[in-house]
Amino acid sequence: MENKLIISPSPHIHGGDSISKNMYGVLIALVPVFLVSLYYFGLGALIVTAVSVLSCVLFEYLIQRFVLKKEPSVGDGSAILTGVLLAFNLPSNLPVWIIIIGSLAAIGIGKMSFGGLGNNIFNPALAGRVFLLISFPAQMTTWPLPGKLPMDYIDSVTGATTLSMINEGVARLPSFADMLLGNMGGSLGEVSAAALLLGFAYLLVRRIITWHIPVAIIVTVFALTGIMYLIDPLSYADPVVHLLSGGLLLGAIFMATDYVTSPMSRDGMIVYGVGIGLLTSVIRLFGSYPEGVSFAILIMNALTPIINTYFKPKHFGGR
């Protein structure tokens, strides 16, 4: 016998896709968002993002190495992505120690306590963010105002976000152009609709995600807030304002589409997206919190298993 022939079941070729390719793909899609936040929030954006990414990667490594006692897999990029997404959901003047606590909550509670990547029920970055929002409501809801490459961090000038203005009934909102570009107060990654949509386009072209979830969310929010606006334009904001402000686009494009915590079939994705849109609109229009995307996504995360049970992929030849 010349040499040992390798035997394996078919298929004998692989498409070359990998977990890390998908994770780094999402990171590339987030680059424009990061650049915009650097421009408006300057040093603060850089510090928050760097601290969040580093502590997420470190916690993932430590937990895998010493608690779960298995080969650490920080190279696959999922911890980096969690770190970036967490940072993008935080105000840019958040103290370092709070960010580290948030990272620990995201990786430790949101991800590793379920068994690591693939087993978590909730989006880790959102779990971290909501943990912080409940624990440190004051710090989490004072947002610095945008500047031009500002070099201040903790002591930056703060102000309200568009949504909290609406909630409190402030009449003068930022212009659509400012909202599109991101020239308004808010979390790091949520301000610029244009940059987020650019990322969305990239994700679709690379086939990292499908259009179903983001479109379902956006359409639902637009429709519901639109109806309320038509009923009473004085008490409710323009639906376009709802789309362009707050974490809606960031949530719809980057958080709700998290592979692990979203449904698998096309129908399920639509149902999940509509659910998030519905909950977001309800919280925004009638709730006491100005923003509801994080809660909406987490609630729908919890419903994902049941959606998977009832919304199966379309079977060849029908049932």
């Binding site: 016998m1 040992k4 022939l5 390798i6 035997i7 394996s8 079941p9």
Partner: peptide, 22 residues
């Protein structure tokens, strides 16, 4: 002595449906 090298899922039922053994 081994004459082949198996590279599929590490499961006897799967390997035995594929061939006689390494």
């Amino acid at each position: 002595p081994h004459v082949n090298q198996y590279d599929g899922a590490g499961n006897c039922a799967i390997a035995s449906s594929l061939y006689g053994g390494e």
